[in-house]
Computed example of a mutant assay.
Amino acid sequence: MMSEYPALPAFSLALVALFLKTTMTSLLQVAARFRTRSFSAPEDAKWAGVPLASVEANLVQRCNSVWRNDVENLPLFLALALSYVLLGATLASAGTLFAVYVALRYLHTAVYLRGLQPWRAIFYLGGIAVCCAIAVQIIRMLLVVRPV
């Protein structure tokens, strides 16, 4: 199967790296909730033995924003990346594009959590550019006439 899809290892590594990034964001959010003792869900506040927070801590809010951004962007990347792999992308090309995307998403998360503009926008737009590059490669591959 690997020989049919030479870029599959690159996709798998990108998928695992993005899973780890989102998991770290979740764990950071949980830690921030406990550190600040601010819980917005009544059952969580009751369980922790603290009053219900009317406003979530800044880091908790930032983690929520990172999550929302990931939920909006990662599925599109993963769909494009998988399509690219299934169409026969080379390991070198896919590996480079996927690694750059993953690095940009990690950087985007780091600067989002710290509130650093214009870096957040730059890293976000870089990720979009990588997705566009993958989309162009997919279109090019689909336009190539293959012998039957």
Score class of each variant (00 low, 15 high):
70 D>I: 04
93 S>D: 11
69 N>I: 08
91 L>V: 12
108 H>D: 04
65 S>H: 11
109 T>D: 00
109 T>A: 02
111 V>P: 07
61 Q>G: 06
86 L>W: 02
88 G>A: 11
71 V>F: 00
91 L>D: 07
86 L>A: 08
99 A>K: 03
87 L>M: 13
102 V>N: 01
97 L>A: 14
90 T>M: 10
73 N>Y: 05
107 L>D: 09
110 A>Y: 03
71 V>I: 14
108 H>T: 02
71 V>C: 11
70 D>G: 01
79 A>C: 14
114 R>H: 14
99 A>R: 02
85 V>G: 06
114 R>G: 10
77 F>R: 10
63 C>Q: 08
98 F>C: 03
98 F>E: 03
98 F>A: 05
94 A>D: 09
93 S>L: 13
100 V>H: 04
66 V>G: 01
88 G>P: 06
95 G>T: 07
73 N>D: 13
109 T>Y: 02
93 S>P: 05
89 A>T: 01
108 H>C: 03
74 L>T: 07
92 A>K: 12
102 V>Q: 01
64 N>M: 13
88 G>E: 03
94 A>V: 07
67 W>A: 09
90 T>P: 09
63 C>R: 01
78 L>P: 07
65 S>C: 12
72 E>N: 11
77 F>P: 05
101 Y>E: 10
80 L>V: 10
86 L>K: 06
97 L>G: 00
98 F>L: 10
69 N>H: 08
63 C>T: 12
80 L>P: 06
69 N>S: 15
83 S>V: 14
66 V>W: 01
113 L>H: 00
107 L>A: 15
84 Y>A: 00
106 Y>L: 15
